[in-house]
Design a protein around this nucleic acid. Sequence first.
RNA 1: GGGCCCGUGGCCCAGAAUGGACAGGGCGGCGGCCUCCUAAGCCGUAGGUCGUGGGUUCAAGUCCCACCGGGCCCGCCA
Length: 624
Amino acid sequence: MKRLIEEARALLRDAGVREAKLDVQRQAGYGEVSTAVAFELSKKSGKDPFSIAKQIVEAVDTSGSRFVSHVEAVKPGYINFHARWDALAEDVIDEAVKAGDRYGALDVGKDQYMLVEHTSVNPNKALHIGHARNTCLGDSLARLLTRAGYRVAVANYVDDSGTQMADILLAFSKLGYGMEPPDGVKFDDYCGRIYTEVNRRIAEDSTLEAERRRISASLEDIGSEFYRLNRSVVDRVLRDQMRTCWRLGARYDVLNRESDVIAFDLWSETFQKLQTMDAVYLAQEGAKKGCWVIKLADHPVLSKEGDEVLVKSDGTTTYVARDIAYACWKLGAVLKDFKYRRWGENPDGSPVYITDVNGEEVLKFGQASSTVNVVDARQKRPQEVVKHALRKLGVDPSRYIHYAYEVVSLSRSDAAKLKVDVQDQQFVHMSGRAGVYINVDPLLDYIAEKAVEGAVKRHPDWPAEKLDEVGEKVAVAALRYFLIKSDPDKMIVFDSEQASDIEGDTGPYIQYAYARASRIIEKAEAEPLPKPYGQNLDDAEKELVKVIGLLPFVFEEAVKILSVKRVASYLRELAVSFNNFYEKCPVLTASHDVKVFRLALVEAFRSALSSAAWVAGIPLVREM
RNA sequence: GGGCCCGUGGCCCAGAAUGGACAGGGCGGCGGCCUCCUAAGCCGUAGGUCGUGGGUUCAAGUCCCACCGGGCCCGCCA
């Protein structure tokens, strides 16, 4: 496909058009590559764009072309290049089949190291669907960057210090909650339920509030009973959370604990530098008297809201201060570094490390070329303060990317199921404190159950294990596609019936196209030979060739604007093209030459789909 | 009060980085297609002031301004 564009560009150059923007034409009927260059030229010369286009087309000589069959000037002034399908099909199919499930890989990220951080759920509860949006976006971004040739490491920030843990510890130490969850309940889920209950009890009994504060304070005392209890609770919750993340297909390289940002003292070095750069000052009066605050006066927007406290009057740091220090570590603006120990293993066998003051492992996860932080849109302001601080420290703030996404809320009907009084609201925000949330694990179970119901009808002979395996993959595909396909700037009003749909514009639709293709390949006795390449292709074949050829461009665009959604919509487009081909073009019963060509086309389709599905995190099955 | 985001058929959403060829798809509705590679599919059909009003342009769903409606953020919390 690239060669078709290059050839079109060369033809234009020979015809006297030095610079032209060429687009691969998505719609059928307007050629395969087109340009609106005549419109631009008409702006300069004042002449009618259509006559300019005609003039250019007359000057184009396609007689020596391999990929271009003919060129035409159309209506208002477009110039459309039509492909020679035998050559284009050969080019696209060869490239896709050769590259296999890495088809479309780029090298734009060569020699660059990207640190992607996502998930970062407080370790006092199980993942709900809002967290899943974060994890799925972040994991797919990491995959996209990997496919684009970057060296990528994935971090999960574990906010293990602070007050949100105190509720759970209060429950275990004073309110008589046992450390073991009831049968069939995961520990993280159990903690989430406790968290809700404790908050209700604190609202009723104010003495508990003081108790919680005391626990919160004693957490600072390293080696204390509460400190040790906290560590063990955090680790148990984290292990359960990670099981859910793995279930969703995510993987991680490192778990960075907030308590270790403090323990390794990344802050003091950062603080010194901020002082040296005259970016902070000790407030002498007003409400923030006695606090070290960062100057925001020269920030175009933040200046209107007053300076930000970094060090409280009691000498402890705020969350934003720790985030600044951590950002400095990520981008190599401080020299101090963590130590690590091996914590566990991803399903793919790769190690997961965790920060640890007693750790033996010295690893380089900091000093990234750039860092992507998947953090919900409500934190835009603090994230902007971090960027401002980086700028002050001489770090190019564009290296720090806040990948913001909007929250997930619940539909009226889902909220009503949770006994929320919905009144006239169209949606209800989730709240861990209020117990209003839908967790990832039960949702996946529910979708898998629906999928198994469908599979059993089709394959009454399948053993339960196989049904469960496919059901699980269908569930993951459905949820990931659902969370990835919509614009990150838009709030998702989650409805479990809609999200668990496995028909229409869904993840399973994409899996289904792949399964159909796989069955053709399995049943074919002939080899998918590269030749002969089809003459007189059916429209459905042409369309499929074109869409397969599009993938490298899709990756290029997606990586440029960090758009996971772009990959999801491509997958849909690709699967539609295949299903169309599947209906109109029989493969196994076709004549020998046609069959061999179509088999190769099906194989090329599988390459394109598996490559893009990997980025989207959609697991594939050969039959379903 | 200041700032950020969203507004596309009954419902959900593509199309917004770079303005261009009839505004695409799904759900739901109606009507078809399994002696043929899996019907989790395909085809047809009905349904649209792209929130409103201005502006820029040969050309605006897309860019600019104002307004309306919805959401979020502005703590010595994280």
